[in-house]
């Protein structure tokens, strides 16, 4: 994967942090006053660098909530979430943004920008790291789209791509910046078997070659076999945590 850009090689990875994500005593509530309801109960977990961790559990068990908390998209209310050794509880918006730039997000919906071509959408994953040689950005984006099997769709607008193709563009956007950690929420839900398999193999390969950590919510049993670890949530609590 020589062509995937190492755009933030200057960011020092914290020495000896075997655990890119370390969660301790995490509680989370939604709503105010009467409607206030706890959805995460005393969650503790450390995630190994370079591993593929899968979050499972019934609907409403808190998988997405946990993912957004670890992904710096929600403020930590109680407990501790450490990202590469840095505490997110009470972190400033600036620190959260800096952390987000080390992550890749893959959403259930592709969330591509309708006005941008496939290539331009992927480039958005690189431009966040600042001005650079645009030729390099373009090359890296094309390379990743090629890996996703979209080598002949570079200049297509999302409206001219199939659902599976759009999701693969979104995956390329999440991976192009060569993130340290990827958060994915049912990324293969909208994909056919082949596309889904391709995405997962891609993530595995990244993990192996670059030490990229992946945390993924999925119901897809085929993926379970590839996971290093499966964490099961129920009613906001970890009820099962098993290495594969």
């Amino acid at each position: 994967m020589a062509n995937v850009m190492n755009v933030h090689s200057s960011v020092p990875t914290d020495a000896g942090s075997r655990h890119p994500v370390a969660i301790a005593g995490l509680n989370h509530w939604f709503g105010e006053g009467e409607a206030r309801k706890q959805v995460i109960f005393d969650v503790n977990m450390r995630i190994e660098g370079g591993s593929l961790t899968i979050l499972m559990g019934p609907s409403g068990s808190g998988k997405t909530t946990l993912l957004t908390l670890a992904g710096c998209l929600r403020d930590v209310q109680e407990g501790s979430v450490k990202m590469f050794g840095q505490e997110l509880y009470g972190a400033s918006e600036r620190e959260l943004v800096a952390n987000r730039r080390r992550m890749g997000f893959i959403f259930q919906a592709h969330n591509l920008h309708e006005s941008l071509t496939a290539t331009q959408n992927v480039m958005m994953g690189l431009e966040v790291h600042g001005r650079d040689d645009r030729g390099r950005y373009l090359e890296a984006s094309h390379h990743l789209l090629g890996l996703m099997g979209l080598g002949d769709r570079f200049d297509y607008l999302p409206s001219n791509l199939s659902g599976g193709q759009k999701q693969r563009v979104a995956v390329a956007r999440a991976l192009v910046g060569n993130p340290d950690i990827v958060f994915a929420d049912e990324p293969t839900a909208a994909l056919d078997k082949d596309s889904g398999g391709r995405v997962i193999r891609m993530l595995k390969r990244l993990g192996a070659e670059r030490g990229t950590t992946t945390v993924m919510v999925t119901h897809d049993n085929r993926i379970l076999e590839l996971a290093d670890r499966v964490v099961t949530l129920e009613d906001g609590r970890v009820v099962d945590d098993s290495a594969h």
Binding site: G71, R101, F105, R173
Partner: peptide, 15 residues
């Protein structure tokens, strides 16, 4: 009309 796209960009780390 572009709230979703902008939210996505925010998640990616745009300020």
């Amino acid at each position: 009309d572009h709230m979703r796209e902008y939210a996505t960009f925010k998640a990616i780390g745009y300020r």
